[in-house]
């Protein structure tokens, strides 16, 4: 029943369609602008996409388990808000303040996990609720006002080792760790199994609830790391921090080939390629001085295509299964025993 080795163009496109798109985008911008395909610009893109990559890792773990966490932008905003307020108003040292941010991120993730697992509420609805509520709390705390970071912290945003920004290294470490967690640990394999089918996973004996809970905690934690990175890059906290990030992360994950149906896809290279796709479009259009709304149009189109491919992949597998079942039927066993009963 295995795929044979024939590689028609259609198959090639289906299997590597995403890479083809990536190369095409790269080619277009390289031709259309002077400075797109330069080392410096490549580093700049990696720098800009670092927070997205980190947050998408958390999203990816949740999505692999067949769930969704659309609160990560708000978690990033609120948990960073704590750090900013502690540093600015209470003179707390940055290291301690950011530790609080990470703890807050994990705690808010645990809140999501509790609502989803403990209260049994649909993840989309649960995290939609926390997305709105947590952003509200953060806006209240900051008076919705842009607050600049202390100078000493702000300068960290451009910290680099050689030509490589530290953000990029952090993102690399996080993405590799998340990928190893998913691919190589029992926890990761179990998450993947849950994404394959929660009922089946439960029957096999996987503690579904506990694993999903942990996935949400990690998602919150990664969101707060991404929040810190974004905060330091911009140098100030504002109502824009993390806004729309949840949808960007979902888009990154889906374009990176991780199925929203769960249990399918890998963090490496998926998340990095997904994030790179969107960053290239933003960066390239920016350099072309294109209409800013063009970005949304192009991005929307790419997300649509990615979703369609995802659905098609799953659909294709399903239809093949069906065919199998039908073909097997003629050979069905002969002579059945009566299911007749005499019940009292």
């Amino acid at each position: 029943m295995r795929d044979n080795q024939s590689t028609s163009f259609g198959q090639l496109a289906r299997r590597h369609g995403f890479l083809i798109v990536l190369v095409a985008i790269f080619a277009v911008f390289t031709l259309a602008t002077d400075h797109f395909a330069t080392f410096g610009n490549f580093i700049a893109m990696l720098h800009a996409m670092a927070p997205v990559v980190v947050m998408s890792c958390g999203m990816a773990l949740v999505v692999l388990a067949g769930k969704l966490d659309i609160s990560i932008g708000s978690v990033a905003f609120l948990s960073s808000t704590f750090a900013v307020l502690l540093m600015n108003n209470h003179g707390v040292p940055p290291v301690v303040a950011f530790a609080v941010t990470l703890a807050a991120g994990a705690a808010l993730g645990a809140l999501n996990g509790f609502i989803v697992v403990g209260l049994g509420i649909n993840p989309l609805i649960a995290t939609l609720g926390t997305m709105i509520a947590l952003r509200g709390v953060a806006l209240q705390l900051t008076n919705a006002v842009l607050i600049p970071l202390p100078e000493s912290v702000r300068s960290l945003g451009n910290l680099s080792i050689g030509p490589i920004f530290v953000d990029i290294l952090v993102a690399a470490v996080v993405v590799i760790a998340a990928d190893q967690l998913h691919r190589r640990t029992v926890f990761g394999r179990q998450l993947n199994a849950i994404g394959n089918g929660e009922e089946v996973a439960a029957k096999i004996g996987i503690p579904v609830g506990r694993r999903v809970f942990v996935a949400f905690v990690l998602s919150g934690l990664f969101a707060s790391i991404g929040g810190i990175m974004s905060l330091i890059q911009v140098g100030s906290i504002s109502a824009y921090l993390g806004r729309g990030m949840e949808f960007t992360a979902v888009a990154v994950v889906v374009v990176g080939g991780i199925s929203l149906f769960g249990g399918r896809g890998t963090i490496l290279p998926g998340v990095v390629l997904g994030a790179l796709t969107f960053e290239m479009i933003a960066n390239g259009l920016n350099q072309m001085s294109a209409n800013p709304y063009a970005y949304r149009l192009v991005t929307g189109a790419i997300i649509f295509v990615a979703m369609y491919v995802d659905a098609m992949k799953s659909g294709r597998i399903r239809s093949r299964r069906k065919k199998l079942a039908v073909r097997d039927e003629p050979g069905r066993s002969t002579g059945t025993i009566a299911e007749t009963t005499s019940r009292p």
Binding site: V186, R189, N192, A193, G195, N196, V200, I204, G263, R264
Partner: peptide, 20 residues
């Protein structure tokens, strides 16, 4: 059949006691 379709045969067989 309690199958995890996207995972390998080995993972399916040993999912509840993966060797580490």
């Amino acid at each position: 059949l309690n199958m995890l379709p996207s995972m390998t045969v080995a993972e399916n067989v040993l999912i509840d006691e993966l060797p580490t």
